[in-house]
Computed example of a mutant assay.
Amino acid sequence: MLEVLAALPGHLLFRARMRVAAELADVLPAGVDVHGFSVLHVLGDGHARSQQDLAAAIAVSATTVGTVAAELVRQGLVARVRNPVDRRSWLLTRTPAADDAVRRWGAHLDEVVRRLTAPLGDAGSAELRDLLHAVTDPHLSAQVPPVLRASTGFLVTRLHERAHRDFLEALAPVGLEPRHYAALVVLGETGPVPQADLARHLGLSGARVVQVVDGLEERGLVSRRAAAGDRRTHLLHREAGADAATDAARGAGDRAIGDLLAPLTAAERDRLTVLLRAFVS
């Protein structure tokens, strides 16, 4: 990773979120879903809950919970029961078959956590979790159970979502998105490079980078030009106005990230950056 990107907490959180997703995809067998596990865990106290309550408890959208719940019902792990307060609505409750599923799924998720935190060691893993918790906890619903609040993968995901949302709002007056800003930062460091190189530096797929470059080109901040001596190769160049846009985005982004990390001291913010670098390396 380029040093200029490794110095950006927002980009480190993006890389950390991508690593969590990659480990989940690599470790979890077909039919095992991290959101489904969270729903089953919350329902383990024997209380039936609405989809809205479950969404708040695991900090995802009601739409996501609806999809997850339908699959859990299909697998016979969750049942729908009438809401005694409002007979027109339904609540979700765990079935006895869910007990075995929670044990089996939990073993897979323990392996995900082990792989995620292996580069940090026990002490580093605990320190990262505590720092993430300090920043994330004020934004979580009181319904989120302790097991999720103590999960590094859960905390990384939630903090990245919060950082991305805050950064997106902060950059709106500049007319950029976080991905555009990161691309401009890379091109400012590397100079003209092929699109594939930009994708590698950003950790994005080729298709997603095409969208990023198209957006910057529409704004007149980047252009594609044929390389000297090789007309088949096109390089990405920063154009006039890119410096001013980058500086404005950097200022807005620094303020947004500063507000987000306000619960941490300056030393703790530096330590969080160090640990996130190790987490994604």
Rank of each mutant, 00 (worst) to 15 (best):
Q52C: 02
V280R: 03
R232C: 00
G188T: 07
L264C: 13
A199V: 02
Q52T: 12
A126G: 11
H139F: 10
P263L: 05
A59E: 07
G229E: 03
A59N: 07
V112D: 08
P84T: 05
G229H: 04
R103T: 15
A150F: 14
A48M: 06
G188C: 03
S61I: 08
L43R: 03
T190W: 06
V113M: 14
Q52D: 08
R88M: 11
A278H: 11
A249F: 06
S50V: 09
H11N: 10
A226P: 08
L128F: 13
R271W: 10
L155Q: 12
V27A: 13
A25S: 03
V209Y: 03
D45S: 13
T67K: 07
R255D: 09
L131E: 11
T190M: 09
V32K: 06
E189P: 01
W90V: 04
A252E: 02
P96E: 12
A21D: 10
H234S: 13
A182K: 00
A59G: 02
A123W: 13
L120R: 12
V193S: 01
H133W: 15
E127D: 13
A62D: 09
G215E: 08
P96N: 10
E71C: 04
V185Q: 09
S205Y: 06
D33C: 09
T233F: 11
H133N: 11
L260E: 02
H180F: 00
R255I: 01
G10C: 05
L148C: 10
L260K: 01
D197N: 05
L43Q: 03
L5H: 06
A118T: 15
A118E: 15
H234N: 07
D86E: 11
V102N: 06
L176T: 04
L261W: 06
S141M: 05
S89N: 05
V212Q: 03
A22T: 14
V73G: 01
L13G: 04
A118L: 15
G36W: 01
V222H: 07
V39Y: 02
R115V: 10
A245R: 01
A170L: 00
A245D: 06
E127Y: 06
R94L: 12
T93E: 15
L72T: 01
